[in-house]
Design a binder for these strands. Structure first.
Lengths: 224, 224
DNA sequence: AATCGTGATATGCTAAACTAGATCAAGGAC
DNA sequence: GTCCTTGATCTAGTTTAGCATATCACGATT
């Protein structure tokens, strides 16, 4: 699957979450089964143009073909017409912590707590509502920041000069994350999930729309 | 098929023609069979996201999901980064005549000459090359302008007050296009086609690109 | 006349989108 | 504990995209 496809899928998922819709709510809006939406969002379906347009429409998006050289300008325009990103200290903290988590996931791709943290923080960011509790967020982010420091300490050693794969592995083994840090990380992931759940449930569900008929018209196939 | 789908298809076809590519040339670029490109462009296939992205890429286009409220601004940006539209009198004449044909097609939807004229003029407009012969263009457009006058004469009568369907039909029968005008229109369609063919063949064919692998990666399906 | 290019159309096959519906695992609320 | 929500996963059937290939009709050129 190409990056371009992934971008489109991410945009669909992001829009759904921004609107506070569950997959079932979107399913009711569009008539596309929830199971199929799940598959689409996870990259397991290479959907048809008509399906893409239908889902986009339910999420107040339009599909456009843009000349390549106009893409930066278009991205700029879209960004400038987006809802204002909250400038609260809590939102900034969330954004920073999310970026830290993303970077750490490059170093520790198998650490599932980081994945959980990223997913929950991303959802919170999409919701644009992180509550007002800066201290709570800083506390959740503390183990993450400490892991970042830990990783940077050992990255200096690992990066110093060329090493064989064996040597790199040995350094990584020596650089095992202390158990206390892992436990704190697990707790942080749990707290982030709790915060996400609390804030997600504040969003009211919107009424469903009738499903428009987007199938190819039979007459349109009659080209003979 | 929705208008949005038609817009995407039109954009693909327009881009191909603007680049002076035949369906077979695009087929060689992308590996998509020419028969399938033909079907896509005529609205007979509801293509997959990966196929759309691939075709777009070969035509220097990117696919974007744009918030609905940002669409006018995006359209503006795309327009402003488009190649400059020639300001020659001949191009202006072509644009005007094309608009006239479009309007006439609403009045006479079954008149195949008008469809042929629109297709050929649209292709010429996409090529942005109409040659330099303003007089030739004006001559091709003459029967079209006369048909427009003819239509406007009878539209006044048909629009004056409410009429039954029978009365409207009688007026339309009385407003049959004179045979000479039909013949001149047929000639104009032929001339437009000739001009199109002459100018299309001036465009050199560009080298083909290797076909990138855009299929869903097998590992991507392994979510279990 | 022969040849070439163009878009449209046809055949036949495989894979997968899409649908309907059910279920699972996990978590949260009461 | 019960009940609900959420996203993920599964089964089974229908439809069609996409591919490979060939051919057609038409127009242009030589």
């Amino acid at each position: 699957m190409s990056y371009a496809t992934q971008d489109i899928i991410d945009a669909l998922k992001s829009a759904r979450e921004t609107k506070g819709l569950s997959q079932r709510a979107l399913s009711k809006r569009t008539g596309v089964p929830q199971s199929h939406i799940s598959k689409i969002e996870s990259g397991g379906a290479d959907i048809r143009l008509s399906s893409l347009i239908e889902l986009a429409r339910a999420l107040d998006l339009d599909l456009k073909l843009v000349p390549r050289k106009a893409v930066p300008a278009v991205d700029n325009v879209v960004r400038s017409t987006a809802p204002t990103i909250p400038a609260t200290p809590a939102f900034k903290e969330l954004t920073r912590t999310l970026e830290t988590v993303k970077k750490l996931r490059v170093t520790y791709p198998e650490l599932t707590e980081l994945k959980k943290l990223q997913d929950n923080f991303q959802t919170l960011k999409n919701l644009r509502n992180v509550g007002k509790d800066l201290e709570h967020l800083r506390e959740i982010g503390k183990p993450i920041r400490e892991l970042q420091k830990f990783a940077e300490t050992y990255r200096g050693i690992a990066d110093a000069g060329r090493r064989t794969a064996e040597q790199i592995k040995a350094i990584q083994d020596a650089a095992k994350i202390p158990v206390e840090q892992l436990e704190a990380l697990r707790q942080a992931a749990h707290n982030a999930q709790t915060l996400r759940n609390q804030l997600v449930h504040i969003i009211p569900e919107q009424p469903s729309l009738p499903r428009p008929a987007y199938r190819l018209d039979e007459e349109e196939n009659d080209h003979g």
